[in-house]
Write a protein that binds this DNA or RNA. Structure first.
Lengths: 204, 204
DNA sequence: ACCTGAACACCGTTCAAGT
DNA sequence: ACCTGAACACCGTTCAAGT
């Protein structure tokens, strides 16, 4: 009934938690989100039980790891909303999220599953991603740059499918999929066949 | 140096192999390609060692399971090549392969990885899928129905990405992704926004 | 309050012994 | 020639004992 008194953690516990997150990022980047947790604990200099003390399961670890990064992504999305070209804004948003969702092999699946799963640590983030997509869509549609029936869920699906494609095909293939699909959705394509390259050159 | 004399297998061995394949199909449909092999062996009424005697690893089992089914799919693709509308033919091909690649959870990844991996039991099948896609593309392009820069690899990527989407999102979402992307590629869209429904109604 | 690491469960894979 | 199932390896997860 009463608020649980939020105590500040012991200094060594805080340090362990931080190192676990840092090493998890390194290992997940190399081996994907299915990498053995034992290796992460060892690299962080703690026993496996300590890892489980801080993160009850793998999803919680991945979730904590992404929470900060997600905030930066959402801020970028907000900025794009006030951008001059709603069409370019939507294109940049999609490539930014694909980049984000391809950080670790297997992450796209965690995100895609997270949208429909209330229990997922990333559920709120996935909903927010879809909402930002919806806002960018509304704005592009108002400018007459987008066909009428495209939804935020469509964009969310495309972004995750493209991130998945990165893990299983040659590097350019995912960008080609995005470019082709976006060309189908955008009614005022900036210049056919170059959607991806345009964005890339402005996003070094 | 000399040809290995191809002996016909013992009757019980043949029966065990067949039952293993049949049960693997059932289990993979329910639990995906990562389902425990022990369960498949038990259902087939044999010990786990027997399964490994017939199939050296999981990929070999999945590969054998798909070889027959793939043949039917390729035959269908050949038929479509002589079809009256190259545009409709390409659309139907894509939906047929998505259906095929979504039969088991995790199958899309096996196929996508198989295209670039010579060692994969499904490598030849993946190459063939891409080739048929290339032929259908050439034919649609000759009819002026397709933009110039679309490749068989693009179609292969789309089909697998859509199959993956089936495993991780609401059922319609994968079809919407396909429809939106195909609309971007087809220059003579039969009627915008209804690409998926059209095909579906003719493919009950 | 937090950490340790042995212990248990589960599953992939191998192989010596059987028929 | 083929089958059996115990044995080993690997990894996720828990928890009693320590500090």
């Amino acid at each position: 009934m009463t608020e649980p008194p939020p105590r500040r953690p012991r200094a060594d516990a805080r340090r362990n938690r931080d190192r676990l997150l840092a090493e998890a990022d390194v290992v997940f980047r190399q081996e994907g989100t299915d990498a053995p947790l034992e290796g992460i604990a060892r690299r962080a200099g703690v026993a496996i039980g300590t890892l489980y003390g801080h993160f009850p399961n793998r999803r919680a670890l991945v979730g904590s790891l992404l929470r900060e990064r997600n905030q930066a992504l959402f801020d970028h999305g907000q900025e794009l909303l006030t951008s001059s070209s709603p069409q370019q804004a939507l294109i940049r948003w999609v490539y930014a999220v694909v980049e984000h969702a391809a950080a670790y092999q297997g992450l796209a699946a965690v995100l895609a599953d997270g949208l429909g799963d209330q229990e997922s640590e990333l559920h709120a983030s996935c909903v927010h991603m879809t909402e930002i997509s919806d806002q960018l869509i509304a704005s592009a549609r108002a400018a007459g740059a987008l066909r009428q029936d495209v939804t935020g869920a469509d964009i969310f699906a495309l972004m995750n499918a493209a991130a998945w494609t990165r893990d299983h095909m040659p590097p350019e293939q995912a960008d080609r999929l995005v470019a082709l699909t976006m060309d189908g959705m955008l009614t005022l394509a900036p210049s056919r066949n170059t959607t991806a390259k345009q964005d890339r050159s402005q996003n070094p």
